[in-house]
Amino acid sequence: MEVSFKHNGVEIEDTFAEGFGMWGSRLIITAVTQKWANIAATSLTGYATSVIACDCEAAIEREIPPEESPDGRPGIAVMIYGFSRGKLSASILNRLGQCVLTCPSTAVFNGLPEEEADAMLDIGKSIRFFGDGFQVKMRMGDGWHQRKRFWRIPVMEGEFLIEEKIGAKKAVAGGNFLVMGATEEATLKASEAAIEAIHEVPGVVTPFPGGLCRSGSKVGSTYAFLRASTNTPFCPAIKHSLKDSKIPEGVNSVLEVVINGLDEESVMKAMGVGVDAATKVPGVTWITAVNFEGKLGKFQMSLKESLGGI
């Protein structure tokens, strides 16, 4: 470790997380109960941890109480990120079609208003064809209130309701930090505290399982057929077998927190509150972040600056 500073008594490497641009979108799924909204969201965001091998990155942002949801039913906000507008659109369409349209009682609403979005994706407008000609266009607010368009698609259970357009914007992926601890238990506990704090920040998600990635990866591999392999410099088990190990003395476990957000400011804030929460747990000895010396993405999110923002 090079230059470092202390926060809550824990060494923080003065480095940055290297983020890159993606297109992001927010959907609001409602259902007859919170249970069914959550089931739909969990299914929708499955197998969407990293674009290394998934079609998109997706996760649950937060549950939405009935009094805040568009139709007065329990809801849940999910965010989906794709490498391009087209890929994002395709992922949303496929995932909605297979995981939400099929889920009992659900309805889908746009969670990114047009004034905040860089583009409006024709999601409902495309999925309507599933109605096989019996879909019904629903109009609201023409000429007197906020104009909205929906599609009502007949399904075996009753009707599936979806907003015609879903907002998307240029977003930031790859915000991260590594929690390093003396034991696996302490590292996991600290990382859980970080995730809990991050979920209080609007506009960000943590797409890995439970928000945590235990097998951070590096680009390339000894094996030519692999695009990515285990992040050897940060594997404590081989720290003395590797010349360029970055594991400080006393560290025996590392977990990575990966954050995607609708803008750099939100990701920075999430990094800050996450690091702050993690460093309050005994047994955490170091925090650092992963970057590729500026070769991967245009966003350089400093740990020091992120902590300054909380």
Binding site: D71, G72, M138, G141, H145, F150, G158, E159, L161
Partner: peptide
């Protein structure tokens, strides 16, 4: 005979934006 989700949106709009409170009793 069904309980359409879309009707919730309209009935909530009638109550919330136009003050027609009776609408909520039909949700």
């Amino acid at each position: 005979t069904f309980t359409p989700t879309f009707m919730r949106l309209y009935l909530r709009q009638l109550a919330g934006n136009l003050g027609i409170d009776v609408a909520t009793s039909y949700i």
